[in-house]
Design a binder for these strands. Structure first.
Length: 489
RNA sequence: GGGGGUGUAGCUCAGGAGGUAGAGCAUCUGCCUUUUAAGCAGGUGGCCGCAGGUUCGAGUCCUGCCACCCUCACCA
């Protein structure tokens, strides 16, 4: 029982004293008249008016001076200083403050507002009450909570003691709002599609499996939304989007969390060039809404979200960079040249995979400014339309920022005959041991056979985008509760 | 999975070459009625990640394990 560290036991002792005094340490409610920010905004009206304000928040600092004390409480929008004086509140309340409250407690105060001689807007306390006793001590006031493991496992402590962390997540929400505002204004409809799916598809990835007891059915958590959103396009919703949690049963590192967020959007009657025009306008808008500017800095490098973005074809930029033009080569020849460039293509099973590997090894890291890389190999783009002019390529682009892939888009394949062939090729890859090639989705093919309008679609990794917009090095900094191994007890 | 690093008080961190465990903040006791990392004086607080080993003696050296971080590989 009483094995508690002294610093914690002291708080339990105070709780007992409160109970002896018949003071409720865990209140039911507190009527607030103002938030801390409102007091500051309305100071000129409040000063000298005799109006009493009631504010509540977490007690974060105390500076005692004998018979008077200063302190700060933090609420949703910021902090406010209070001044409590023996002469005003009397012996009982002052001793209650001095002896029974701790940093970390949630308290409510009432009093008039004034400015100290250093000019800080301050509440002169007339009444003070405890709303919730904090039984565990908070991290240190100056350094905050630094240990990354503790920050991620106990995010609430991170949020309490590191105000900048709160800003990152506020920006994350601003990003969602900006996408919604932009897309809604352009006639897109926000929709929801299944997370639990009997067949996964729309990307190359290992899925999470689960089991539906009612139907004794193996189910998967979605790896992408693509095939369901296209069904909606077929159904006559011509512009749709979804902000979607996807799940991939793969590695965990600074760029990957097993559960992550994308936005996918589809517009009928567009091709991938329309989507590029749209995407750069949308990204410029989102960056401006989140950061207040399109000119940002990520890991010491200036990045401009000002449209238009650079556009260059994958094969051309790779040829420029490496001196090897892979166009017109067959699989064996491409492999030979890739190896001559020092790129390991041992596990690559077709021409496109080889070219993509060379690109991602030797070119990708240099794409710091937002750049559209266009015209990907057709054999690694099973859901994209074949390029109208360039044999072997597809009408597909990916967007790179700060050397990382952030979005991926196509002129969507709408020919069910070619789609079936593409799926068949994926089944070959599966049989060759490619675990990430998705199984064939007959229901989706049936939908396509009813006729799908020409369509362009885009997927954008929102975790990576907000990392860049908040200058965060790890995906764990932008996900409230990133995946952590449970601690062994 | 490979390589490198970290783990010591509630928090942030020191502990040189094996010899009784340290600081700041917090906490506790005094003093202090406009401070803001308030101040002054004094005190409490430790499974040194876990388990073994070497040694007269291990926070320190060795082995194994655990968690986390960085990095490479993998991952659209």
């Amino acid at each position: 029982m009483s094995e508690r560290p002294e610093i914690i036991q002291a708080r339990y002792d105070k709780l007992s004293k409160l109970q002896e005094l018949n003071i409720t340490a865990f209140a039911y409610k507190f009527h607030r008249t103002h938030l801390s920010a409102e007091i500051k905004d309305k100071y000129t009206e409040l000063e000298g008016s005799g109006e009493k304000v009631r504010v509540a928040g977490r007690l974060m600092a105390i500076r005692g001076h004998g018979k008077s004390s200063f302190g700060h409480i933090w609420d949703n929008d910021g902090k406010i200083q209070f001044y409590i004086k023996y002469d005003i509140v009397g012996e009982e309340q002052y001793n209650f403050f001095k002896k029974l409250l701790d940093i970390g407690d949630i308290i409510g105060i009432e009093g008039e507002v004034f400015k100290t001689k250093t000019g800080e807007i301050t509440v002169k306390v007339e009444k003070i009450e405890i709303l919730s006793k904090s039984l565990l001590p908070l991290p240190e006031k100056w350094h905050g909570l630094v240990d990354k493991e503790a920050r991620y496992r106990q995010r609430y402590l991170d949020l309490i003691s590191n105000p900048k962390v709160k800003e990152i997540f506020i920006k994350r929400t601003k990003m969602y709002k900006a996408f919604r505002a932009f897309l809604d204004s352009q006639g897109f409809l926000e929709v929801e599609t299944p997370i639990l799916q009997p067949i996964y598809g729309g990307a190359f990835a290992k899925p999470f499996q689960t089991h539906l007891n009612a139907l004794d059915l193996r189910m998967y958590l979605r790896i992408a939304d693509e095939l369901y959103l296209k069904r909606l396009i077929i159904g006559g919703f011509e512009k749709v989007y979804e902000i979607c949690k996807d799940f991939r049963n793969e590695g965990v590192d600074r760029l990957h969390n097993p559960e992550f967020t994308q936005i996918e959007l589809y517009s009928a009657y567009w091709d991938y060039r329309d989507m590029m025009d749209f995407t750069e306008r949308m990204l410029e808008f989102v960056a401006g809404e989140v950061c207040g500017t399109t000119e940002i800095e990520y890991e010491g490098r200036a990045i401009s979200f000002k449209a238009p973005f650079k556009r260059v074809s994958m094969l051309e930029v790779t040829a420029e960079k490496t001196g090897v033009d892979f166009r017109g080569m067959d699989y064996a020849e491409a492999k030979k040249y890739a190896e001559s460039l020092g790129v390991d293509v041992g596990g690559k099973r077709n021409w496109g995979q080889v070219v993509e590997e060379v690109f991602s090894e030797l070119v990708q890291a240099d794409l710091v400014q937002p750049t559209f890389i266009t015209d990907f190999p057709a054999d690694i783009s099973p859901l994209a339309k074949p390029h109208r002019d360039k044999p072997g390529l597809s009408e597909r682009f990916e967007g790179y920022i700060a050397g990382e892939e952030v979005f991926n888009a196509f002129s969507e394949l709408n020919d069910p005959i070619i789609q079936r062939e593409k799926f068949a090729e994926l089944q070959k890859l599966r049989r060759l041991g490619d675990e990430e090639a998705p199984p064939i989705d007959e229901d989706f093919l049936t939908a396509m056979e009813y006729g799908m309008p020409p369509t362009a679609g885009l997927g954008c990794g929102l975790d990576r985008l907000i990392m860049i917009l908040t200058d965060s090095h790890s995906i764990r900094e932008v996900i409230f509760f990133p995946l952590m191994k449970p601690e062994e007890k």
